[in-house]
Each structure stands twice: as structure tokens, then as C-alpha cells.
Amino acid sequence: MVWLTWRQHRAQALVTAGLLLALGVFLLVHALGTSGAGPEALRDRYESVQVYLSWLPAVPLLVGAFWGAPVLARELERGTHRLAWTQSVPRRRWLGAKLLCLGLAVTVAGLALGMIVAGWQSAFDGVADRFGDAAMFGATGVAAGAWWLFAFMLGTAAGGVLRRTLPALAVTTAVFLLALFAVLDARPAYAEPERRVVEDKSAPSAGLRTGSMWLSPSGVEVETVPECADASGEAWLSCPLEAGYRMVEYFHPADRYWRFQWTETGILALATVLLAGPVVYRVARKPI
């Protein structure tokens, strides 16, 4: 079964490995070029690439489309499942071996991508943000692997239910984007944010900022400062402070990064297991 899985999916495996290698080499060279750069130059250099890497959360979509969707849809579309499932390997084992081999491969690839990006970020000390930057959070750490595995299983399930590769691609895309935006939306709620009153406006906020309020001199938090309702432009920025208000910030401190990583991984892992349901049903109970 391992040979068959490799033979049927080696194109995806080789292309993925090749792209990861190319990205790794590029980011390595890019990171090595930072030596001796000042803070301003460092930021420019980081942002010049970060702009493109912020698309990384959408990459698992390709995994779902090219790794996941064909696993069942291609067999069902071409009738080759009737060949595969009448060999001596019972189809539960066929499915188990495929999901295990391919799931392991995409998870390892996703984790590798996460390590590549994290390694690149470590060269931009004080500039790179792996937590507050939503794109970088999903593209690093264990969540990177979880996203890849989730997308793979989503594609596999869509292919199994729809039995056609093309509609499976469409459904995978739609569901993945929905899931992505839902998770981005839910991420700040993984824990109760901490509150702090910003005494010194120049202090940079570390971690994941979730919101801010104005604290009135009498100790009441308001969203908008009534005294500054008519202020505009420059005055709008300085008005609240002059009126005696202070800013209150809600945020997740940077040391919650791994806790959030594991929370997101848990959510995605649960979704992956739920998606395995229709896959097993299609193969084991209702093949046509």
C-alpha cells in the first residue's frame, strides 16, 4: 500500500517538496542578508517579503485541492476504485493506509513550512511578529501542520461525497475559506484577554491586541470620548489625552503564543476527525 500511495501521489509529493525547498533556500538567503542592518533597514527588509508571506494561510487550500480532493474523487470518477477495492487488501485497510501516509506527509510538510517561516522570522529580532500578525501565526508553529492536515481531509471528504474532482475543488475552496475566516475571527477569543492601562503611549504592545477603550478620569471605560465628539484631524488624536482620558488596551501577552497554537491545533484536529466520518462512510459503507 505504501508503494501504491507513493506511486499515485508522487507528483504532488515532489512538487510540494520542491516548493518547500525553494522557499527555504530563498528565505535562508534573505535572512542571512540582514547582518549589520539598522532597525529601519531591518524593518524594510522584513516587510518586503512579509507582504507575500501573508498569503501563507491560503496555501493549505492548494493542499486540499491537489492532495485531498483526488484521493477518492479521481478513483470514483474513473472507476478505478473497483480495481483497487477488489484486490486482496480490504478497502478499510486501503483507506487507512492512504489517509495515514498522505496525512502524515502533508502534516510534516506543513510543519516544515512553519519551521522555515519561524526560522526566517528569528533573523528579524524586534521586527518580526509571530503572534499579533494573524497570517504569521497560522503559518508557524504546530498550527501550520494542523491547517495542512485539515485542508487535506476537507479535500478528501469533498471528493468522496461529490465523487467528481472539479466540484470537489470548488467545495473545498468555499468551505476552506469559510473555515479560515471563522478561525481568524475566533482566534482572539481562545482566552480571556488581559487589560492594561497605557501610561506611556510610546510603549509598544507585544502579543495579540484584541481591542482598546478610553478610560475616563472618573474610571469609566468608554468607546468614544464625548468631549472630543467635534474634534477632527490632529486634535482628534490628542483631544482625549488632554481631556484626561487614558487608553486601555486588551491584549494577549506574547507568552500565550504556544497556548494559542495548541488551542488552534486542537480545534482543527477535531474538525479533521469529523471530516473523516464521511470519508470512511463513503469507502466502507456506500461505494458505488
Binding site: 499515485q8 474513473r78 472507476g79 478505478t80 473497483r82 480495481l83 477488489t86
Partner: peptide, 11 residues
């Protein structure tokens, strides 16, 4: 057993 399905599917 061995089965040769209609349309003789092969990879």
C-alpha cells in the same frame, strides 16, 4: 477472487 469491472479500469 478477481474482478474485471466494466470499462476495464486501470490506472
Amino acid at each position: 477472487i478477481a474482478f474485471l469491472a466494466q470499462d476495464k479500469p486501470l490506472y
